[in-house]
């Protein structure tokens, strides 16, 4: 189950049991209507104006959705730069960055560990890493409420050592740890799969020839795993950047990330054009990121795949 970011290099030979090209129509129609269609519409909406009072858009051209992102009137009616929404983007970036960084840092030794096991063990370990991947994200986030509550598991354990209950929940650290928990398998799986075919005797030989440990990691292992790392960045960073459940459930209403900011515009704040504009900005950043990854991959001729 791999989806190549870089499209397959050569045309496949005519395959058995092939159907006429028209059979792709229903799927393409679905994609046009319910994937591309919505993205086109939201882009259009981001340039429309907000109705006097409420949800929806008036079909009158306006760039207010984008202006709002950077400029606001203060209480005295002076228009000026306002960095509050940028700081929500910054917080999302920081959270996504640490999520991705931590996930990859943890996944690296784990991937080596898995790849150096016998094939049978590898399959079992692969399964063990895949199960959390397919477990409901909502309940995996909920688990951290149980762990971090004031009368939760962690504080209970601390209590055994005579440590007073700590406030662990409802802050950006709780959000971050659950993000790492959520996306760690997204890092382990592609990094493992790029190491699964690696011949570890290479590393062994390097040792025998007197290479230092750091050199072995840097010059032999890292090149082998870097394709997986690129996939891991794509798979961890994007969803962490746009995450909604973790900041809402574990942030206690105090952690404002882009995901909940956007959801709020279609909820409580009832400002569709602004929500649409924020979405377009996120989409543009995602595309930019994907393009940068692909360019990097091409230049270093690394094969990137969104292995699931």
């Amino acid at each position: 189950m791999a989806l190549n970011l870089a499209q397959h290099e050569q045309r496949a030979l005519p395959k058995p049991g092939q159907l006429s090209g028209w059979f792709t129509t229903p799927a393409i129609l679905l994609g046009l209507l319910f994937t591309l269609g919505p993205i086109v519409v939201i882009t259009v909406f981001s340039f429309m104006s907000q109705p006097a009072n409420g949800s929806g858009v008036d079909l009158i051209f306006s760039t207010k959705g984008y202006e709002q992102f950077l400029f606001q009137e203060d209480f005295y009616g002076n228009r000026g730069f306002d960095g509050r929404y940028l700081s929500a983007f910054w917080l999302s970036f920081v959270q996504a960055f640490f999520t991705t960084f931590a996930s990859i840092a943890i996944a690296f030794p784990v991937a080596i560990w898995m790849a150096t096991k016998t094939e049978r063990t590898q399959n079992v370990l692969l399964m063990l890493v895949t199960i959390p991947f397919w477990t409901n994200l909502l309940v995996r986030t909920y688990a951290w409420i149980i762990l971090l509550s004031e009368d939760g598991t962690v504080n209970t354990v601390l209590g055994w050592f005579g440590i007073e209950p700590q406030v662990l929940l409802y802050n950006s650290y709780a959000t971050l740890i659950s993000l790492i928990f959520s996306f760690l398998p997204f890092a382990i799986l592609p990094m493992y799969s790029s190491l699964a075919g690696f011949d570890f005797r290479l590393a062994e030989a390097a040792y025998d020839l007197g290479a230092r440990k750091l050199d072995v990691i840097r010059k032999i292992l890292w090149p082998a795993v870097s394709g997986g790392v690129l996939s891991a960045i794509a798979l961890c960073f994007v969803p962490a950047f746009g995450s909604y459940l973790q900041p809402v459930l574990l942030g206690g209403g105090k952690v404002l990330m882009v995901g909940n900011l956007i959801a709020d515009q279609y909820g409580q704040a009832r400002n569709w054009p602004f929500g649409a504009a924020l979405s377009v900005i996120i989409l543009a950043l995602t595309l930019l990121g994907a393009w940068a990854l692909l360019t990097w991959a091409k230049r270093s001729s690394t094969k990137v795949s969104l292995a699931v």
């Binding site: 994937t35 591309l36 269609g37 919505p38 993205i39 994007v238 746009g242 649409a276 979405s279």
Partner: peptide, 21 residues
């Protein structure tokens, strides 16, 4: 690319985009 987009586009964006659509 179009058909794989749901994997890459943040869910919250897909959600409000579909509602708008």
């Amino acid at each position: 690319a179009i058909l794989a987009a749901p994997i890459v586009v943040p869910e919250v964006v897909l959600g409000i985009a579909t509602l708008s659509f």
